[in-house]
Amino acid sequence: MEERPREPQSHYDDEISLVDLAATFLKRRRVFYAVLFSVLLAGIIYAVLMPEKYDYVSLIKLAEKEPGSYIEKPATVIATLENRWLPEYQSTYHADHDEQIPFEILFENPENTGLIRMVSEASPSQSEGVKQSHALLIDKLSEAQSAAVSNLRENLERQIESLSSTIKMLEGATDAGAAIAAAFEKRLSLEATLNSMQPMEVLTVSRESAERKGPARSLIVLLAGLLGLMGGVFLAFFTEFASLVKAQLTET
C-alpha cells in the first residue's frame, strides 16, 4: 500500500512560547524590579505623609411649634444656610485671609427629623477653624430661630387676648352659647400651642468622628504594590520589544 505523504506542519515565525516569555522576563528583570520598588516606595511615602482627616459634625435641633411640627421647615433652613449665610461667611473669610476656606461645610437633614447636621472634612490642625466656622453659622441660625419663636409667641398671645375679649363680650349676649364654646376651644388650642413651643437647641458643635476618613494606609501600600507589579511586567516586555525594534532598524 502506498503511504500518503505527511503534510508539513505549519510553522509561524512569530509564535512565542512560555519559555520565550520567561526568558525575556528574566533578561529584563532589572527593569521589573526598578519599577516595582519605585512605585512601592512612592506608595509607602504617600501613605506615611498623607494627612489624617476626620469628619467634624455639628448637630442642631430646630425650634418646635408643636411636637413634630417645626416653626421653619428644615429644607427652608438648609436653603438659607447654603445660599445666604455660608456665602456671606466665605466672602468675609476671603477678605480677612485672602484665601478660600480650606474645608467644605455641608448641611444635611436626617429624614423625618427636625435636625440640621453641619459636616466638614478636615485635618486635626484645621479643627479650630472648623469649630469657629460652625459656631458662627450656628449663631446666625440661632438668631433667626429666636426671632421666629418670638414672632410666633407674640402672634399667639395676641390671638389669645383677642379671643378672651370676644368671650367676655359674648357672655352677656343671648343665644351665644355655641359661639362662646367655639371661642373657648380655639383659645385652649392656642394656649396649648403656646405652652408646647420649644426653642432651638444646639446638641453638639464640631464633634470629631471616631474613625479617620479616606483609605487606610495599608490599602494604599497594597494598591501601590499591585500597580508596581503590573507596571513592572509591562515595562519589562516593552523594553525588550523596543530593543528588538531598534536592532531591526539598525540592521536595515
Score class of each variant (00 low, 15 high):
residue 130 V to S: 01
residue 131 K to C: 01
residue 131 K to F: 02
residue 131 K to T: 05
residue 131 K to I: 00
residue 133 S to D: 01
residue 133 S to K: 01
residue 135 A to S: 14
residue 135 A to Q: 12
residue 135 A to F: 06
residue 135 A to C: 05
residue 136 L to R: 11
residue 136 L to N: 04
residue 137 L to W: 00
residue 138 I to K: 00
residue 139 D to V: 08
residue 139 D to H: 07
residue 140 K to T: 03
residue 140 K to P: 00
residue 142 S to M: 06
residue 144 A to M: 06
residue 144 A to N: 06
residue 145 Q to L: 04
residue 145 Q to I: 02
residue 145 Q to T: 01
residue 146 S to F: 05
residue 147 A to G: 07
residue 148 A to R: 05
residue 148 A to P: 03
residue 149 V to G: 02
residue 150 S to E: 14
residue 151 N to P: 03
residue 152 L to K: 13
residue 153 R to S: 15
residue 153 R to P: 03
residue 153 R to M: 12
residue 154 E to A: 15
residue 154 E to H: 15
residue 155 N to F: 13
residue 156 L to E: 10
residue 156 L to I: 14
residue 158 R to V: 11
residue 158 R to C: 04
residue 158 R to A: 13
residue 159 Q to W: 09
residue 159 Q to F: 07
residue 161 E to F: 09
residue 162 S to N: 15
residue 164 S to G: 11
residue 164 S to T: 15
residue 164 S to I: 12
residue 165 S to A: 15
residue 165 S to V: 07
residue 166 T to S: 13
residue 166 T to N: 12
residue 166 T to H: 10
residue 166 T to I: 11
residue 167 I to D: 05
residue 167 I to K: 06
residue 168 K to Q: 11
residue 169 M to H: 12
residue 169 M to P: 02
residue 169 M to T: 12
residue 169 M to G: 14
residue 170 L to K: 02
residue 172 G to E: 07
residue 172 G to V: 02
residue 172 G to I: 01
residue 172 G to S: 08
residue 173 A to Q: 14
residue 173 A to K: 15
residue 174 T to N: 10
residue 175 D to W: 09
residue 175 D to N: 15
residue 176 A to L: 06
residue 176 A to D: 08
residue 179 A to V: 02
residue 179 A to L: 09
residue 180 I to S: 00
residue 181 A to N: 09
residue 181 A to Y: 08
residue 181 A to V: 08
residue 181 A to Q: 12
residue 182 A to Q: 11
residue 182 A to S: 10
residue 182 A to T: 06
residue 184 F to L: 14
residue 184 F to C: 06
residue 185 E to H: 07
residue 185 E to N: 14
residue 185 E to M: 09
residue 186 K to V: 08
residue 186 K to A: 13
residue 186 K to W: 05
residue 187 R to Y: 08
residue 187 R to Q: 15
residue 187 R to H: 10
residue 187 R to K: 15
residue 188 L to W: 01
residue 188 L to A: 13
residue 188 L to D: 12
residue 188 L to V: 11
residue 189 S to I: 02
residue 189 S to V: 06
residue 189 S to K: 12
residue 189 S to L: 10
residue 192 A to Q: 14
residue 192 A to H: 11
residue 193 T to R: 09
residue 194 L to H: 07
residue 195 N to Y: 06
residue 196 S to I: 05
residue 197 M to G: 05
residue 197 M to W: 03
residue 198 Q to I: 05
residue 198 Q to P: 01
residue 198 Q to N: 10
residue 198 Q to C: 01
residue 199 P to G: 01
residue 200 M to C: 01
residue 201 E to F: 04
residue 203 L to E: 12
residue 203 L to C: 07
residue 204 T to L: 09
residue 205 V to R: 00
residue 206 S to R: 02
residue 206 S to L: 04
residue 206 S to I: 03
residue 208 E to I: 09
residue 208 E to H: 04
residue 208 E to Y: 03
residue 209 S to T: 05
residue 210 A to Y: 07
residue 211 E to K: 10
